[in-house]
Amino acid sequence: MPEGSASLQLAVGDRVVYPNQGVCRVSAIDVKEVAGQKLTFVTMRREEDGAVVMVPEGKVLAIGVRKVASAE
């Protein structure tokens, strides 16, 4: 991610809310080559049905992904 860009610090195992998809758990953060460029992807699995969603790390905030609020 370019320096100075806002990002959401995620780790494998974090629970997040993905708008219009529901609650997901981060299952992987991997670098993949797409069209000759190396990009970091956040892979999330929906808790409702296990569907897998992959989002480029740089788009996580723009999409509206946020961490699940704690009970505290």
Results as ranks from 00 to 15, higher is better:
residue 24 C to L: 11
residue 11 A to R: 12
residue 2 P to G: 11
residue 68 V to M: 07
residue 55 V to Q: 04
residue 63 I to P: 05
residue 1 M to S: 14
residue 31 V to C: 01
residue 63 I to C: 07
residue 4 G to N: 10
residue 48 E to V: 13
residue 70 S to L: 10
residue 62 A to Q: 09
residue 3 E to M: 11
residue 26 V to N: 00
residue 59 K to M: 15
residue 1 M to Y: 12
residue 72 E to D: 11
residue 57 E to C: 05
residue 10 L to A: 01
residue 43 T to A: 04
residue 30 D to H: 15
residue 19 P to L: 07
residue 5 S to T: 11
residue 42 V to S: 00
residue 52 V to F: 11
residue 44 M to K: 00
residue 63 I to H: 12
residue 62 A to F: 06
residue 60 V to N: 02
residue 35 A to V: 04
residue 48 E to K: 13
residue 37 Q to P: 01
residue 50 G to Q: 05
residue 62 A to E: 15
residue 49 D to H: 02
residue 36 G to S: 03
residue 29 I to Q: 01
residue 65 V to H: 04
residue 2 P to C: 04
residue 15 R to E: 05
residue 38 K to Y: 12
residue 13 G to N: 04
residue 9 Q to M: 09
residue 66 R to I: 15
residue 43 T to D: 00
residue 12 V to K: 02
residue 43 T to V: 14
residue 38 K to R: 12
residue 42 V to A: 01
residue 38 K to W: 12
residue 20 N to K: 08
residue 71 A to I: 12
residue 43 T to C: 01
residue 63 I to Q: 09
residue 38 K to I: 09
residue 12 V to D: 03
residue 30 D to R: 09
residue 65 V to N: 03
residue 45 R to P: 00
residue 8 L to V: 09
residue 24 C to T: 00
residue 54 M to V: 14
residue 52 V to W: 08
residue 18 Y to N: 02
residue 16 V to M: 03
residue 31 V to H: 08
residue 8 L to M: 10
residue 46 R to K: 05
residue 66 R to T: 15
residue 69 A to V: 13
residue 14 D to G: 00
residue 57 E to A: 11
residue 34 V to F: 09
residue 6 A to T: 12
residue 31 V to P: 01
residue 34 V to P: 01
residue 6 A to I: 11
residue 51 A to W: 15
residue 7 S to K: 10
residue 8 L to N: 07
residue 30 D to T: 14
residue 29 I to C: 00
residue 47 E to K: 01
residue 23 V to R: 03
residue 2 P to V: 13
residue 20 N to V: 05
residue 48 E to R: 14
residue 5 S to K: 08
residue 10 L to Q: 01
residue 12 V to C: 00
residue 11 A to W: 06
residue 7 S to H: 12
residue 35 A to W: 08
residue 69 A to T: 14
residue 28 A to P: 01
residue 37 Q to G: 08
residue 66 R to F: 15
residue 38 K to Q: 10
residue 24 C to E: 00
residue 56 P to M: 05
residue 21 Q to C: 06
residue 53 V to R: 03
residue 19 P to G: 10
residue 48 E to F: 13
residue 22 G to I: 04
residue 18 Y to I: 13
residue 42 V to T: 00
residue 22 G to Q: 06
residue 41 F to P: 00
residue 45 R to W: 11
residue 8 L to C: 02
residue 45 R to D: 03
residue 70 S to R: 07
residue 56 P to C: 05
residue 51 A to G: 11
residue 53 V to I: 15
residue 27 S to D: 14
residue 10 L to H: 01
residue 23 V to D: 02
residue 7 S to R: 07
residue 69 A to M: 10
residue 59 K to Y: 13
residue 13 G to H: 03
residue 3 E to L: 09
residue 29 I to L: 06
residue 5 S to A: 13
residue 22 G to V: 04
residue 36 G to F: 03
residue 40 T to Y: 07
residue 8 L to P: 07
residue 71 A to P: 11
residue 26 V to A: 01
residue 2 P to Q: 11
residue 24 C to G: 01
residue 61 L to S: 09
residue 56 P to G: 05
residue 36 G to E: 03
residue 54 M to P: 02
residue 70 S to C: 15
residue 29 I to N: 00
residue 31 V to E: 09
residue 37 Q to H: 09
residue 57 E to T: 06
residue 6 A to P: 12
residue 54 M to Y: 10
residue 20 N to M: 09
residue 54 M to D: 05
residue 35 A to P: 02
residue 49 D to K: 02
residue 44 M to V: 03
residue 13 G to A: 01
residue 69 A to N: 14
residue 63 I to F: 12
residue 45 R to Y: 14
residue 32 K to E: 06
residue 5 S to N: 13
residue 59 K to W: 15
residue 36 G to P: 00
residue 38 K to D: 04
residue 3 E to Q: 11
residue 4 G to P: 12
residue 28 A to Y: 06
residue 58 G to M: 10
residue 51 A to K: 10
residue 18 Y to P: 01
residue 15 R to H: 06
residue 18 Y to E: 01
residue 50 G to H: 04
residue 52 V to I: 12
residue 11 A to M: 13
